[in-house]
Amino acid sequence: MGRLTTHVLDTAHGCPGAGIHVELYRVGEGVEKIGEAWTNEDGRCNQPLLQGGAFRVGIYQLVFKIGYYYRARGVSLGEPAFLDDVVLRFGIAAPDEHYHVPLLVSPYSYSTYRGS
């Protein structure tokens, strides 16, 4: 059964991104919020963000509240911050597979890929 998971690594501090608010949207004729979670001490969400019958072919968007995370750590970002929300839009083409979307982030950069 397919599922969607994520993992955040704070490359600026060399640690998991714990306590980051993550929102999940389905993109169609509009953008519909379908879920949210917070990362745990390992930078992962405790449950898949999407699975079962809700996990289907389509375009999705993850929004990571990175600015809030860094401000809570005491990092001065300036106003407006260079990165506040990191938005990743991606497609799910095979609903029977595991889609893992890791995010490597710092206050001024991010990188992602389809993990396993």
Score class of each variant (00 low, 15 high):
Met1Cys: 06
Arg3Val: 14
Arg3Cys: 12
Thr5Gln: 07
Thr6Arg: 09
Thr6Tyr: 09
His7Asp: 03
Val8Leu: 14
Val8Lys: 06
Val8Met: 09
Asp10Lys: 06
Asp10Ala: 03
Asp10Ile: 04
Asp10Thr: 03
Thr11Lys: 06
Thr11Ala: 10
Ala12His: 15
His13Ser: 07
His13Arg: 10
His13Ile: 04
His13Glu: 08
Gly14Gln: 11
Gly14Met: 10
Cys15Lys: 06
Pro16Arg: 08
Pro16Lys: 05
Gly17Tyr: 07
Ala18Tyr: 00
Gly19Lys: 10
Gly19Cys: 09
Gly19His: 07
His21Cys: 06
Val22Arg: 00
Glu23Gln: 12
Leu24Ile: 06
Leu24Gln: 07
Tyr25Gly: 08
Arg26Ala: 13
Gly28Tyr: 05
Gly28Asn: 11
Gly28Ser: 03
Gly30Trp: 01
Gly30His: 01
Val31Tyr: 08
Val31Glu: 05
Val31Thr: 10
Lys33Thr: 06
Lys33Met: 12
Ala37Phe: 08
Trp38Ser: 12
Asn40Trp: 05
Asn40Ser: 14
Asn40Cys: 15
Asn40His: 06
Glu41Trp: 12
Asp42Leu: 14
Gly43Pro: 13
Gly43Tyr: 08
Arg44Met: 07
Arg44Cys: 06
Cys45Gln: 00
Asn46Ala: 02
Gln47Glu: 15
Gln47Tyr: 14
Pro48Arg: 00
Pro48Asp: 01
Leu49Gly: 04
Leu50Asp: 13
Gly52Asn: 01
Gly53Tyr: 13
Gly53Lys: 13
Phe55Ala: 13
Val57Met: 04
Val57Ser: 09
Gly58Glu: 11
Ile59Ala: 12
Ile59Tyr: 05
Ile59Met: 06
Ile59Thr: 14
Ile59Asn: 07
Tyr60Glu: 05
Gln61Gly: 02
Gln61Ala: 14
Val63Lys: 14
Phe64Met: 05
Lys65Met: 08
Lys65Gln: 12
Ile66Val: 14
Tyr68Gln: 11
Tyr70Val: 06
Arg73Val: 05
Arg73Ser: 09
Gly74Leu: 01
Val75Ile: 15
Val75Gln: 11
Val75Arg: 12
Val75Ala: 01
Leu77Gln: 07
Gly78Pro: 03
Glu79Met: 12
Glu79His: 05
Pro80Leu: 00
Asp84Glu: 08
Asp84Trp: 11
Asp85Ser: 11
Asp85Trp: 03
Asp85Asn: 13
Val86Ala: 04
Val86Tyr: 07
Val87Tyr: 10
Val87Asp: 10
Val87Ala: 08
Val87Arg: 14
Leu88Gln: 11
Gly91Phe: 02
Ile92Ser: 00
Ala93Arg: 08
Ala94Glu: 13
Ala94Leu: 10
Ala94Cys: 15
Asp96Thr: 15
Asp96Ile: 00
Asp96Pro: 08
Asp96Gly: 13
Glu97His: 15
His98Glu: 15
Tyr99Lys: 03
Tyr99Trp: 04
Tyr99Gln: 00
Tyr99Gly: 02
Val101Glu: 04
Pro102Leu: 01
Pro102Gly: 04
Pro102Glu: 10
Leu104Val: 01
Leu104Tyr: 07
Leu104Phe: 02
Val105Gly: 01
Val105Arg: 06
Ser106Val: 03
Ser106Lys: 03
Pro107Ile: 04
Tyr108His: 04
Tyr108Val: 09
Tyr108Trp: 10
Ser109Trp: 14
Ser109Met: 10
Tyr110Asp: 00
Tyr110Trp: 14
Ser111Gln: 02
Thr112Trp: 10
Tyr113Phe: 15
Tyr113Gly: 05
Tyr113Ser: 15
Tyr113Lys: 08
Arg114Val: 12
